[in-house]
């Protein structure tokens, strides 16, 4: 088997060489050094750091709130995509453009805006306090920030699939006697499910590592509202490089497994679509 198929276009060696060098210097070498550093800790020290109550609590919180926010976005992201594709209402173009706001707004800005909004005296905070719910400085607040961050991932992956969905299939379902709800559950939803899951996985993996929009609203109480990225930051400020590296290593392994699973899943659905 040859490494490369023949082509008349020049520049393969140069561009591939540049890409690999750049990628190695910026991404691969620094990242592998982190894993190397984690192995020099020794297994016992590493294990001791990772299973400490504070680290486990922060990992549980980061993954738990990320999962909760991804589930909320699965429902509301789908709804927003549905409404934007299927219905007409005044100002639709502006609303459509605004969906990308969480991509474009610096996370620190989103963080202080959401904190002010959900603080006990904020506009939403007062409303929720009336219902006896405390949002800011609780896991709920963290989840709200992560919903904000993850929304465009779900909407933007579902939207094109929904747009390309053929109306004829829905007409066929109708003429075969299905009502709208049945058509949605049994015909439309299965078709957009791969995109919806991909969008959710992207939102989830972004949410797990999210820092800027969460630190302000989290309250940062150890064991209660301290997310894993913040704990890394705290350990760094205390010059505990080994501790920071251990937590980072665990988070990276989980994120990479997730990335790998998403890619496999996408490859699998693409294959399925071709059949």
């Amino acid at each position: 088997m040859k490494f490369k198929r023949h082509s008349v276009i020049p520049g393969f060696g140069f561009t591939l060489g540049f890409t690999l060098t750049y990628l190695s210097l910026i991404v691969l070498i620094p990242l592998s050094l982190l894993f190397l550093k984690a192995t020099t800790l020794g297994w016992e020290h590493f294990w001791h750091t990772v299973v400490s109550a504070r680290v486990l609590a922060s990992l549980r919180l980061s993954f738990g709130t990320a999962l909760a926010s991804a589930l909320v976005n699965a429902v509301f992201g789908l709804l927003v995509a549905w409404v934007l594709v299927r219905y007409d209402f005044p100002g639709k173009k502006i609303v459509d453009a605004l969906v990308d706001l969480p991509f474009a707004l610096p996370t620190a800005v989103a963080g202080i805006a959401l904190t002010t909004l959900y603080a006990p005296h904020g506009w939403m905070g007062r409303l929720l306090a009336g219902l006896g719910i405390k949002a800011a400085f609780t896991p709920l607040g963290i989840t709200l920030a992560l919903i904000f961050i993850g929304l465009p991932f779900v909407v933007r992956t579902v939207e094109p699939i929904l747009q390309d969905f053929e109306k004829e299939i829905e007409e066929a379902a109708f003429s075969l006697g299905a009502n709208r709800w049945q058509t949605f559950c049994k015909v439309i939803l299965p078709a957009i499910l791969p995109a919806l899951l991909t969008g959710c996985a992207m939102a989830f993996s972004r949410a797990v590592g999210e820092y800027g929009s969460v630190v302000f609203i989290a309250g940062n109480m150890p064991l209660k509202t301290e997310i894993a990225p913040l704990l890394i930051m705290t350990k760094l400020e205390q010059y505990d490089y080994a501790g920071a590296t251990a937590i980072a290593g665990v988070m990276l392994v989980i994120s990479f497994l997730l990335l790998f699973a998403t890619h496999l899943f996408q490859a699998w659905t693409r294959q399925y679509e071709r059949v």
Partner: peptide, 29 residues
């Protein structure tokens, strides 16, 4: 423009920074 061995893997590697927490991106340096 080219077909070569390991192309898919390289594409995944390019996307890698997106799945790394920003805090870890700073930590590695």
């Amino acid at each position: 423009k080219f077909d070569f061995v390991g192309k898919k893997f390289l594409t995944t590697l390019i996307d890698l920074p997106f799945s790394v927490s920003p805090v870890i991106s700073g930590l590695i340096y």
